[in-house]
Simulated scan of single mutants.
Amino acid sequence: MYLDELVEFCLNLPDVEETQPFGPEHVVYKTKGKMFLLVGLEDSPIRFNVKCNPELAIQLREEFPLAVLPGFHMNKKHWNTIVVGPELSRKQIESFILHSYQLVHK
């Protein structure tokens, strides 16, 4: 998945806004005023943080140790950092984003 595809996927979800509260190097996607995804614009490979159910967060880190990490600069109980690469399919990446969105959009 490329950065432009990630952006498009986020912006196609209902009630999503794109903000840059941490400066021009990062983009935050919010719904209902709450953040569900943070992505660095200059990271290579692409890395982004998503919210996650705590039990699922641990399970995903164990299943994908190179691609799903504890949330960098975030509450590691509730956030994962996703490293885009060959270990994860596009469908898996989209499911992580959608899960995060659904946790926040309630």
Rank of each mutant, 00 (worst) to 15 (best):
D15I: 00
P21H: 08
A57L: 09
V84N: 10
E87Y: 00
G23C: 02
E8L: 13
L69C: 08
H105P: 02
W79H: 12
V83M: 10
P86G: 14
L11T: 11
L13S: 12
L103Y: 07
K77Y: 04
E55Y: 11
P70N: 12
K106T: 04
L98N: 14
D4N: 11
E25M: 01
G33N: 09
P86T: 11
H105F: 02
V39R: 01
P21D: 03
V68M: 15
N49T: 06
D43E: 12
V68S: 09
L38M: 10
T81V: 08
P65D: 03
N80L: 13
R61G: 06
K32N: 13
S89Q: 06
A67K: 02
F9D: 14
E94S: 04
N75V: 13
F48T: 06
E94K: 06
I97P: 07
G33F: 05
F22S: 00
Y101Q: 07
F36K: 05
P14K: 07
T19K: 15
P70G: 12
V50I: 13
S89K: 09
V104C: 03
R47F: 05
S95Q: 14
P54A: 06
A57V: 08
V39H: 00
P45H: 04
V68D: 10
T19M: 07
L69T: 00
G33V: 03
L3Y: 15
L6D: 04
M74F: 01
E17M: 02
S44T: 13
P70F: 07
N53E: 15
F36I: 12
V50L: 12
D15G: 00
I97A: 04
E55D: 12
L88F: 02
E42C: 05
L66H: 07
P24Q: 08
L6V: 03
R47L: 09
C52L: 04
S44M: 01
K76L: 12
M74S: 04
K91S: 15
G85W: 02
E18C: 08
G33S: 07
S89Y: 05
E5V: 01
T31P: 07
F64M: 13
S100E: 10
P24N: 14
K51Q: 13
W79M: 15
F36M: 11
I58E: 10
H78V: 11
T81H: 05
L88V: 09
W79V: 12
I82F: 00
P65W: 08
I58N: 05
V39N: 00
I97N: 11
N53T: 04
H99Y: 06
P65E: 07
E63N: 15
N49W: 01
K30V: 08
H78C: 11
F9I: 05
L6W: 00
L6S: 02
V104Y: 05
E55P: 01
M1V: 05
K32F: 04
K30Q: 10
T19I: 05
H99A: 08
Y29H: 08
G23R: 01
Q92S: 13
C10I: 07
G71N: 13
A67C: 03
I46K: 09
C10V: 08
E5Y: 02
L37D: 09
A57P: 10
L60M: 13
F22R: 00
